[in-house]
Simulated assay, not measured.
Amino acid sequence: MLSPFPKPWRTGQHCRYLALLAGLLYAIGAHTESAHPLPAASLTDVSGLQVGSYTLPSGTTGCTVILVAGEGAPGGVAQRGGAPGTRETDALHPLNLVDKVNAIVLSGGSAFGLDSASGTVRWLKEQKRGWDVGIARVPIVPAAVLFDLPVGDNARIQPDVECGYKAAQTASTAPVQQGSVGAGAGATVGKLGQPMRGGLGSFAYRMPNGLVVAALVATNALGDIVDPDSGRLLAGARDAEGKLQDARQLLRDGRLFAQTMPRMGENTTIGVVATNARLNKVEVNRLALMADDGYGRAIYPVHTMYDGDTVFALATGHWEGKADMSLIGALAADAMAQALKQAVLQASSLPGIPAVKDLLPERKP
Rank of each mutant, 00 (worst) to 15 (best):
Q249W: 08
G296R: 08
I66N: 04
V105L: 13
K364W: 10
S202Y: 00
A247W: 00
S326M: 15
T32P: 01
P142H: 10
A298T: 06
A215N: 02
K357A: 15
V273I: 12
P39I: 11
V212N: 00
N280Q: 11
T260N: 13
L49H: 06
V121A: 00
A215L: 10
V68D: 03
P6G: 13
R122Q: 14
L233G: 08
P365R: 05
G29L: 10
P8V: 12
R248L: 09
T173F: 06
A22D: 07
M261C: 11
Q13K: 14
V212I: 13
A240V: 14
Q245V: 09
P175L: 09
A277D: 01
F203T: 00
Y306T: 06
T44V: 09
A41K: 10
Y165P: 05
G265R: 06
R255D: 10
W319G: 04
G29I: 00
T44N: 01
A174R: 13
P142F: 07
P175D: 11
A291L: 09
R197I: 01
D309P: 07
A332S: 15
S172Q: 10
N280H: 10
G186M: 00
I299G: 03
R137W: 06
V101I: 14
V65N: 02
S326E: 15
G321D: 07
A315V: 04
E241C: 13
T310Q: 06
M290S: 05
N285C: 11
A298K: 00
M1A: 14
S172H: 10
S348C: 10
L25R: 02
Q342P: 04
A83Y: 07
S349F: 02
A111N: 11
P175I: 09
Q177P: 01
A78S: 13
A167N: 03
K166M: 07
T89H: 12
R252P: 01
A215Q: 02
